[in-house]
Design a binder for these strands. Sequence first.
DNA 1: CTGAAAGCGCTTACAG
DNA 2: CTGAAAGCGCTTACAG
Lengths: 332, 332
Amino acid sequence: MNIYDISKQSGVSIATVSRVINNSGYVAEKTRKKVMEVIEKNSYSPNAFARGMSTSSMKTVGILTTNIRDLYQAQCVYYLEQDLKKHGYTAMLCCTGDEQAAKKEHVELLASRSVDALIFIGSHFVEKSEKDNGYIYAASNHIPVFLLNGCLSHSNIYSILCDDEKGCYELTKCALDHGAKSPYFLATRDTFSVQRKWKGFKKSCKEHDIEIDDSRFRLLEDGFEQLGSQVFSILQDTDIDAAICVDDEIASIVEKVADYCKRKVPRDLQITGYNDSIFAKLAHPAISSFDNRTAYMCSQAIYGLVQVLEGKEFPEETMYTGKVVLRHSTND
Amino acid sequence: MNIYDISKQSGVSIATVSRVINNSGYVAEKTRKKVMEVIEKNSYSPNAFARGMSTSSMKTVGILTTNIRDLYQAQCVYYLEQDLKKHGYTAMLCCTGDEQAAKKEHVELLASRSVDALIFIGSHFVEKSEKDNGYIYAASNHIPVFLLNGCLSHSNIYSILCDDEKGCYELTKCALDHGAKSPYFLATRDTFSVQRKWKGFKKSCKEHDIEIDDSRFRLLEDGFEQLGSQVFSILQDTDIDAAICVDDEIASIVEKVADYCKRKVPRDLQITGYNDSIFAKLAHPAISSFDNRTAYMCSQAIYGLVQVLEGKEFPEETMYTGKVVLRHSTND
DNA sequence: CTGAAAGCGCTTACAG
DNA sequence: CTGAAAGCGCTTACAG
């Protein structure tokens, strides 16, 4: 069943059928009705490839995530997909992992599928070395690129991000305001947003006249067991009294290890997470965290995407604020 | 840059260019080399739509999930996508939510994109009323359908599932073997796999001569706060001494509430989860759970998918076993 | 308001 | 081993 069949059965040309399908151009109400009837009777739906070939678009956008099993990234995918389909777009998902080569390959894979736009989730894609971002720049020459929680200055790249520097500054301030003297900063990766959080951490320490150096930045190996043993070492070997973690999952593990080491949270050790996820709520005591408004970020991205694809203006960079959510892992 | 440009630059016909691109038919080594050079020089890549139009496939498969924010479902998506891309397929993701109409709409959306196959994640799609599964049957008339953790008998539908009846039977047995007399079964949804788990629960109770009726099946409203208060009621109003939960997230919340109510786990209350996720590991005490081998299930699904799309045979139903992972939320 | 016709960029029998 | 040609199913100026 194709447009010719519909055309025959309804006694009009395929051009007219096309017009009623796409709601474009003029077509007499009577004609439209007749054609619609035939279409519905046959439950005809136009061939996506042919359509794509004519219009060079299948209303598809590529979403890139390094790891969909990460709750935060899954959250983003969820909101993005919600908004995307509201606008008739469909999402192609790629989970790239952390290796540079794989990331590049996936971008090419999506490009070969002629997606209308590319959305990169998380700061995991923005590398310190400009050369390593080359494949993102290259992609942006053909299709609009949206960066969540990251920032790259280039035409046709649009960055939307929460002010994580401020976020981490405020969380650190909570701990320091309530007596912490020896805070540590814990991360499992050194990404763009981690760097911004680290900056906020340092700023807050400075304001509290706490001398710190780079040894306060603990880059830990990922994985449940590995994290546990590394955190254990830190608890043994340092005078840590506040763990400022870049996400709630790490914070949960710190709390679990603290419990194991008989350190009372928050009395002996204050802990903060990030993202305000279920991990922060489930932990015992519940963990103070930062709500970085994922839903808002995603809806902004899709709004921008639609604007750009319609040829309208959209700012290259959008930075917005989140909010601290106090719980019982910091002193009150 | 299209196939004609390549054809001109390399001095051969487009048919030949097509052959070298697709590695099909005979083409002289010398010709192939020349054409490849031109292709690479121009970094040409064939237009996916045109290709799709000729072959009626864009090597794309649709993945349907009710909620990607659910750790288990995210896990599935992760493994599926991994395997899919190994075979040159790309994943289109749809998060449908729980409403029937939306599920149906999404299937149609994917069908209109001419995906090569459909994969439904989780038992959330298999309804008790056969009528409500109509849209799945309908889809299977055009494209192969793969069902993870669910089972539907119909041609062109392939079901791959873990033996959850056995899984839940074994978990319940752990609790009962270690003294529980009044177990309850907790779920947030009444799906196909929940029914199977319930069956295993009942079987184990029967073997232990524990009289139970349907009031042991507690269907709870989802959501962090809601769950907390409902579990609280159960702890207050019943003589529960074992909570057999259909997933680790529920189990974590039960444990949190138990702690709040000063019930010692596992002494006063044994708890079991399901899926063997990070929630089970993070909880304190860590929660006994069931490893249903998600990675295996997904790889089986993609293996089957490739077989079917190549016109080969694959069994309509595959059921495999998982394994209990004992931790400290049950007595040892 | 409607239709004939060109064009989108491939693949694949078929003939040589 | 290679090429000419048909076909895939749409959209969209253009003419009327």
